[in-house]
Simulated assay, not measured.
Amino acid sequence: MIPYGKQEIIQQDVDSVISVLQSDFLTQGPQVPAFEKSLTDHTGAEHAIAVNSATSALHIACLALGLSEGDWLWTTPITFVASANCGLYCGARVDFVDIDPKTYNMCAVALEAKLKLAQQNNCLPKVVVPVHLCGQPCDMKAIRGLAEQYGFAIIEDASHAIGGRYEGDPVGNCKYSDITVFSFHPVKIVTTAEGGAALTNSAELAQKMDLLRSHGVTRDESLMTIESHGGWYYQQVELGYNYRMTELQAALGVSQMTRLDDFVEARHRLAKRYNQLLAELPVTLPYQLPGTYSGLHLYVIRLDLDKITKTHREVFDSLRQNGIGVNLHYIPVHTQPYYQEMGFKLGDYPHAEHYYREAISLPMFHLMTEQQQDEVVRVLRHVLEVE
């Protein structure tokens, strides 16, 4: 089976992890700050807070921005459920903005229309979470302009997008957002096994997220309510969580970050080749928003169902049965039973639902060989009955 995604672990990565195992620190040592520095060095952001998952990063980002009961968080329906759930964790209400049918990201035009209506109904969002699906940046300048007009904070969910660029600058620099979140799950571009990070240019937000990832506990006397009792003393000043990243994960991340540019360049070579090999098939190829450079975590095609005899499911199942590990990113969040119990229903976000009926993620990982790619295309042609 050719997988849709796969990490690369080389001896350098193994040696980095072994060095931690042989050190004095398995957690809360020097590797987590080193990994955070690699992220700020790459992106240009002022601060990075490494945590145990991107879900945790989204949660503490929402909390740091003051999201709470009675507030609204808006995101896109085409994302993993964590992009919406983070609002529910804070007691907020969640709503969605339909996608742009070309980029599959949150549509800035639809966002503006929804904001105008929300302003009339006095229910503007406190936080908006645009998601850089597949690694392609959203139209962040437009979204930031709307944030300034309507007064909401922005969390970029860049779980797919490390190594990407917007207007020539690295995704994660927070030029157009308050906080950016990365994921380091094994199928992502860079992995720490499990892990995530929240980046920001705000010292205040960074300090808040630093507290929230570790029980709300501090040894920093400047944050304490009374003078320290001694070297052993700490205070809990927030209700925080155990969201810390381990030294083992961070060491792997430091090693992986040295190859980030190579990873993304390889994905772009593969995508260019896919574009050429699939050009004559009855599928829609990925669109690239001008002024952006995708991290290319995923390569998603859409089936032209009017030109083939098989259904979406039949194509998907046939590909898997023939050794092609395709996937589908994502099931629209508003169609999940948990969200339908809140009142969401089919028809609410038609572009997202149309996308779901046609989308398939083809294998895309930087170690993929041309022979593997040729096999993916050969099987796809056969399944689509294009010979």
Rank of each mutant, 00 (worst) to 15 (best):
V333D: 04
H329C: 14
I301N: 01
P290H: 03
L328M: 09
T292G: 15
H297Q: 13
H297C: 08
N327Q: 08
I324T: 06
P290K: 00
P332Y: 00
Q288T: 10
L296C: 06
P332C: 06
L289Y: 08
H297T: 02
I331N: 01
L328D: 09
L305E: 06
Q288H: 11
D304L: 07
V315Q: 04
F316M: 09
D317T: 05
H334K: 02
G325P: 09
Q288C: 14
Y287V: 07
V315D: 12
D317G: 02
L298W: 05
H334E: 12
S318G: 04
Q288F: 11
Y330N: 14
R302P: 12
G325M: 01
N327D: 11
R320F: 08
L319E: 06
H297F: 10
H329E: 15
N327A: 13
G295I: 06
H329F: 11
V333Y: 02
D317Y: 06
Q321G: 14
L303F: 09
Q288P: 06
L303Y: 03
T309C: 08
V333F: 11
L305Q: 08
R313N: 09
V300M: 10
I324E: 08
D317I: 06
R313M: 13
G325N: 03
Y287K: 02
H334V: 04
V315M: 12
V326L: 03
G323C: 09
D304E: 15
D317A: 07
L328Q: 12
T311N: 11
K307P: 05
S318R: 00
P290Q: 04
Y293M: 00
D304A: 11
Y330P: 15
D306Y: 02
L296A: 02
R302C: 12
L296K: 01
H334Y: 13
Y299M: 04
H312D: 14
T292I: 12
Y299P: 01
L319N: 01
E314A: 15
D304K: 00
G323E: 08
F316A: 00
Y299S: 03
D317W: 08
L305K: 03
S318T: 07
P332I: 02
L298H: 01
T309S: 11
Y330G: 07
V300N: 07
R320C: 09
H312V: 08
D306E: 13
V326F: 01
L303Q: 01
N322W: 05
L319I: 08
Y293N: 02
L305R: 02
